[in-house]
Design a protein around this nucleic acid. Structure first.
Lengths: 206, 206
DNA sequence: GTCTATACTTTGATAGAC
DNA sequence: GTCTATCAAAGTATAGAC
């Protein structure tokens, strides 16, 4: 917020929190660890963010906003460059998410916030997610509907949920599939995207 | 552990914990709440379970073991009664999970443990899950491979992961789709199963 | 082996001086 | 906007009764 390269207390807290959350999870990270790494006083967290929970949400929001923007941009490019084709739309949905999940700095924290929204009865966070995710998802729903005309709106939404679920699972690296030692992270991610797009495309067209 | 209907301290803790975890989540439930509801001393938790984390895992394991058994039984029935058909196999995988997720007593807690395994860097829990889930998944992989002969083992495992992800998401009731007011829980669950089976079947066959 | 009373340690949060 | 001091509540650990 100035002409210098100085990072504000708030920004330093966000940065430190993101790294620690990604590495140790939320429960495993204390605010004292965060403030110690950010080199600020323990009380600064509550002053700037109100609570630990709200700090978590803010860490998440930075990445989420960025990913949503990438998705929307990619969607526009897909529908203009490949009109009527389903796979490029699915790629626009899948690829930014997998790229983020793999980001060393924010990916772990991001995936964890999503999972936490599953796990904890947290209607505030759920509503927040549905407000943001909802908007993006509806854009994709419209675009997909244009490629698969026979689909009812209900069926379309069910299938979008299935895609989102499979993608979230893949982002968390949770399944049977493990990256083989000889394959780089980028290649593994691209393989995942390719497989998921093919799987989902067949599902949407069925 | 007797001829009476007496519940041991351990069982009372497990029962109270399951209900509270399902209702308030893990972070939202203190051990003092648990021991108060179970009418046992606070120290009994650490005596019987070692830690809160381990209590969570034990609550989960009871349901998990039960669900895995149901899945395996349903798989056997499917392959003998409908040999060579893919959809009954997928149903054997999907339906026990959705039924459990909807169970008022244990469903909430169950889904939350799975989500927590996503969210927290907990290799113990992840390994435990992969040990149990892994065994069941491999049975299903074999059965599916019999129905879709052209599929490589790698592709098969990718797609199983996608199915598991979509199913987990659906179990958590996390997506856009909400149960309409006029539809019962059972009907909604059956609709979900039907849609997911169709979606995944097309994906596996692609 | 089982359970209880009790104390220890760390956590997130707050109040008030500066 | 930031700090020190302090708080209540949480998970955990231990000693000893039965």
């Amino acid at each position: 917020m100035a002409t210098t390269t100085h990072f504000s207390t708030k920004d330093r807290i966000l940065g430190a929190a993101e790294e620690l959350f990604a590495q140790f999870g939320f429960a495993g990270t204390s605010l004292r660890q965060v403030t110690s790494r950010a080199d600020v006083n323990i009380a600064a967290v509550n002053y700037h963010f109100g609570s630990k929970e709200n700090l978590v949400n803010e860490v998440f929001r930075r990445r989420m906003d960025d990913m949503s923007r990438q998705r929307i941009d990619a969607l526009k490019a897909a529908t203009t460059q490949h009109p009527g084709e389903l796979e490029p739309i699915l790629a626009a949905f899948v690829e930014p998410a997998l790229a983020l999940a793999q980001d060393r700095h924010g990916g772990g924290a991001f995936v964890r916030v999503v999972a936490r929204a599953y796990a904890e009865k947290n209607d505030t966070l759920r509503k927040f997610l549905s407000d943001h995710y909802g908007h993006v998802l509806r854009e994709f729903a419209k675009a997909i509907a244009g490629c698969v005309p026979g689909l009812s709106k209900e069926e379309l939404y069910w299938r979008l949920d299935f895609l989102a679920g499979a993608l979230t699972y893949a982002m968390a690296d949770f399944g049977l599939i493990k990256r083989p030692a000889g394959v780089g992270e980028k290649a593994h991610r691209e393989r995942c995207a390719r497989e998921l797009i093919r799987f989902a495309a067949a599902g949407f067209k069925s």
